[in-house]
Amino acid sequence: MRNVIDILDLSTQEIDSLIETALDIIDDPAKYSDICRGKKLATLFFEPSTRTRMSFEAAMYELGGNVLSMASAASSSAAKGESVADTAKVISCYADIIAMRHPKEGAALVAANNASIPVINAGDGGHCHPTQTLADLLTIKREKGTLSGLTVGICGDLKFGRTVHSLINAMSRYEGTRFVLISPEELRVPDYVIDESIVRKGIPYTETADLDAAMPELDILYMTRIQRERFFNEEDYLRLKDSYILTADRMKNAGPQMIVMHPLPRVNEISVAVDDDERACYFKQVLNGKYMRMALILMLLGEAGKLSGPAVPRMIQL
């Protein structure tokens, strides 16, 4: 059974196909509006989330499918002590595909190893968040016209930010990528990510704490939130939470070509005044995320042999 736990579970060719499908959905949504009729997506969210869960649910509805959802982890069997493995086996009896978020790292892999239907990781603690990265990649493709030859600045919490590690893994596979990693010392990208995803691939990168100095050379500035829920120590969180705040004034340091991205939700790291800047793309990411989730659901259901008919895109009939 094919699952997507990590962005690296998808080849660059498959990502190209997903982008192609997403662009086709954007062009002609009616073609896809009934393609998943009778199919059910189970959204298992063991951690609070609004946008990712609703994005998956909107994606499935727009494909003509149905959604099985639990209201919250507190109302699920997990609260009674059921294991992730058992939950995955049980839900496999009800649904055709699972999207799961869980606070523990590796939970989605456990679910995938036990489910008999495809599992999509919708975030496992601070580890991976591949569908956010798919949203990011479609946004970059639509805004910059390419995924190659870009200087990507990533700013904020680069230690615990799961979207950061997934984005680095994804962009490190495209030719000509260069990373500028902007963070306080305590929230640097973990060494193993730098070693495995950047250094070994011979990708140029710099690490800095100075956002203003880094901005002029960037094609993309990817801002992230300092996440309270990843800290064991409230003091550390309070000390670091205001490390970087992007203001309209600061945007003057950037070139006209630099786009601003953010996985959202934001707290205060991007001033609301920046929203009016045409280089601000974070709300476009949200919409792009829905289209890429639609494309991914189609791909996985197609590969599992659960879709048929003339409207099924070529890529999922492989």
């Binding site: 493995a85 869980h102 606070p103 523990k104 790292e105 590796g106 456990v110 603690g125």
Partner: peptide, 13 residues
Amino acid sequence: RNPRCITSTEQEL
């Protein structure tokens, strides 16, 4: 040894 890892809570994993 990572307390955030699923191995810290999942039964008999």
